[in-house]
Design a protein around this nucleic acid. Structure first.
Lengths: 173, 173
DNA sequence: ACTTGCCACGAAACAAACTTGCATCGAGCG
DNA sequence: CGCTCGATGCAAGTTTGTTTCGTGGCAAGT
């Protein structure tokens, strides 16, 4: 009887029904941990969210297969690899036909210095985050990416002085 | 006498290690792999870079302790967690004294919706990358972060329509 | 109300990866 | 020339991740 009580208690926690893939409180708790440190042993995760290690493992695998977890990566200090300068670039195109936009996307995607690239609304078309070893390297990059491209109307550069906060963590709440 | 010996031993241990061990080709090759997938077994890494698994393990640990590897994290799909909207914000302050800037940094740092925050040169002072569930939530955030702050001169909003490329990977070359 | 099917869980066995100790090799140096 | 230091590879030991199996609850259909 006492065992029954404990079992029902666990069940009450697990209650939320999920026909397909909605994330329940367990999944979110696991994600919150993995977003901070994905080397945390599953046993520790289980202790923290009140689940067994296999249950944690199943949920992680399901979220990886469903695409909720997109990748598991190491975050590296750019300075240590010789790319100490972070630059934001606003890019404005001349022609915004679908073809021209895709062409620009492909060009930015292919440049390894471009760490992030977003197609945005507003006065500009693209926002880029660029990593370079030096301003000379950035000058060379602008030549290659912008000046040699007739479809670039103009671009504005913002050099980062302080990386106040940098990450890809998503709020779990 | 024995105590002296022990003391000197502790001294040798306590001596701060070389601040930045230069990264050789092996380290860079390992980082290139870990930046893409840090679940890669050390044995596989060793095969790919022509090193034994323990050698790989020692190098990884050294880079973690020296700060070259800053974290090991899972990348999560923001849409799956209910934050489908990515927004870039340019923020311009009224007063740019050191104290006011630090105050702004602290404020942005404390906001979980702010995924990235850089202090930049140029016409604006800060560039933010913000994740929100809806435009209504962004409206509430602007009220909390900007309108309720007398030191914000103005801000410009760019809503992302397409996440062309998003990551924190650093070029290894 | 009972039963059936389904799904998720936990315990334990199993496999794989990580970690450590030890001997060896080569470079720098007295 | 011999020494020390650092890094490597091999092998054993330990932790971690994975699979298997049995149990119990919830929903749907008798």
């Amino acid at each position: 009887m006492q065992v029954c009580f404990v079992a029902s208690l666990f069940c009450r926690i697990a209650v939320p029904e999920n026909p397909t893939h909605p994330l329940d409180a367990f999944d979110r708790a696991i994600l919150a941990i993995l977003q901070q440190d994905n080397t945390t042993p599953q046993r520790v995760i289980g202790e923290r969210v009140n689940l067994s290690a296999p249950a944690v493992q199943r949920r992680i695998r399901r979220m990886e297969q469903s695409g909720v977890i997109q990748a598991n990566v190491a975050i590296v200090d750019p300075t240590a690899l010789g790319h100490p300068i972070t630059i934001f670039v606003e890019v404005e195109l001349v022609s915004e036909t679908a073809g021209d936009i895709d062409e620009a996307k492909r060009r930015f995607l292919a440049a390894p210095e471009v760490q992030q690239c977003y197609y945005v609304t507003g006065d500009v078309d693209f926002m880029l985050v660029v990593l370079v070893p030096s301003m000379a390297a950035y000058e060379a990059l602008t030549r290659r990416l912008f000046f040699d491209n007739a479809n670039i109307r103009k671009f504005r550069t913002f050099v980062a002085m302080d990386r106040v906060k940098a990450g890809l963590a998503v709020p779990v709440t």
